[in-house]
Design a protein around this nucleic acid. Structure first.
Lengths: 231, 231
DNA sequence: TGTATAAAAGTAAAAATTACCTTTATATTT
DNA sequence: AAATATAAAGGTAATTTTTACTTTTATACA
């Protein structure tokens, strides 16, 4: 090691994960009861220390695996918080990620063992430290993502109706999209494939199931935003 | 300190700044000749260690001040790189920022003393480690920023013509915007104020100078992108 | 006085968005 | 068996925005 002179003996490096799920037409957040001091027992994001020989990305995957049993969880780095005073327990730099998972029974068992719990985003408890800010930032990034490309692959089941998808968008942006216009727009993006089967649970007529096309079937850019300044 | 058990004795925390400037109708990057091993003498981004009692944001400001003499430099966090192998000199986690500065004579003197140098983005030398990736990420973020809101306040002089602004956009997106359409679009955003004076250096007729309105004069949202999915 | 130049303003076609309305399919009720 | 109710699916027309141009303007210089 070459940089020895410059070493800090006081800073810790952690990851925190804002874990989003979608169930019963609600966007949900997975938080857990803190098991270490300070503020043991308070609600907090799921996090952990970054080991010496791993990247923050790998640490986040490890943490996500430990509470959900899932591997290869979809995650995006959000930003890093490094104010030395942000955590009263010490100088903790945390790299924030958001993760998207499908809420399912078997993962939920593990989650319970872990003392974690799903909350609808709007009913989540106050979190420790700056974690409420982290949630806001993650949501902001999520919204930007969902405006750039059709979103939902990681949150919805394999097949879903356009109503399911629209309601997810309603949740994300906290507004009501027009069913007809939403259908037209989404279909025009050419990233969905219509299936033969219908979901009859919501209507007499039944709504066709759709699925996301495979990633390699989709052309490079299918932005939902419409750039101005194109010429 | 409560977390002592979990402390890493091997990881360093740094910041790296992708410093953009704009001069002679070119978007430029400030890089400098590395003064420490490994790869002393190679071109690299401007960076530095994050001290124990400061945040990454503060460290970036400190580094920016040290080479430009400027305070309150505009900066945005880009992302954090933490692959333990990214720097052969040790396990260095770096928080990346981009910064925007006006290229001016007096700052340039300091920059020279420091062994730093401006390069047009397209003619920049290869940088050490993963720094070329960092530049790409910063540029990506810059482009997104410039598509969300009218951009240039931090790079252009106090007053500028619409041609100046358009050429900056040409540089950022590497394409030619139509002068008429650009003018129409930019003016419709209502974030510029037209001045009485003209710049006669580029044309017989002369082009009116404009300036950015003060931040508090500008209404909340003036996106350049046009969201779909608005209803 | 004419000419050349970029600035500024204008225009019309095309595309996208928006706010609706109509038709369709079918399980359930009468 | 027919009527009904419902969400799905598809359609439409007005409006707005974008795009690709053209025309007019102001003025220094030949």
């Amino acid at each position: 090691m070459i940089y020895d002179n410059y070493h800090s003996s006081k800073r810790f490096v952690a990851v925190d994960c804002v874990i989003f799920g979608y169930e019963h037409e609600q966007l949900k957040l997975l938080v857990f009861k803190r098991v270490i001091e300070p503020q043991q027992g308070s609600w907090s994001l799921v996090g952990g220390w970054v080991k010496d020989d791993e990247s923050a990305e790998a640490a986040a995957q490890r943490v996500l695996h430990s509470i959900t049993g899932l591997t290869n969880v979809y995650q995006e780095q959000v930003q890093t918080f490094s104010n030395p005073q942000r955590d009263p327990g010490g100088n903790v730099l945390t790299v924030e990620f958001y993760a998207l998972i499908k809420v399912e029974k078997h993962t939920n068992e593990l989650i319970h063992e872990y003392g974690a719990q799903w909350f609808p985003l709007s009913e989540r408890p106050t979190l420790i430290f700056d974690h409420d800010v982290l949630v806001d930032k993650a949501l902001e990034k999520l919204r930007i993502k969902a405006s750039y490309e059709l979103f939902g692959r990681q949150l919805l089941p394999e097949r879903f109706t356009l109503s399911n998808l629209r309601k997810l968008y309603n949740e994300i942006y906290q507004k009501e999209f027009d069913p007809g216009n939403f259908r037209k727009k989404v279909w025009s993006l050419k990233v969905l494939q219509q299936l033969d089967e219908k979901d009859k649970s919501e209507s007499r007529k039944g709504a066709y199931y759709f699925k996301f096309k495979d990633v390699d079937e989709i052309g490079a850019g299918t932005p939902i935003f419409n750039r101005s300044f194109d010429k």
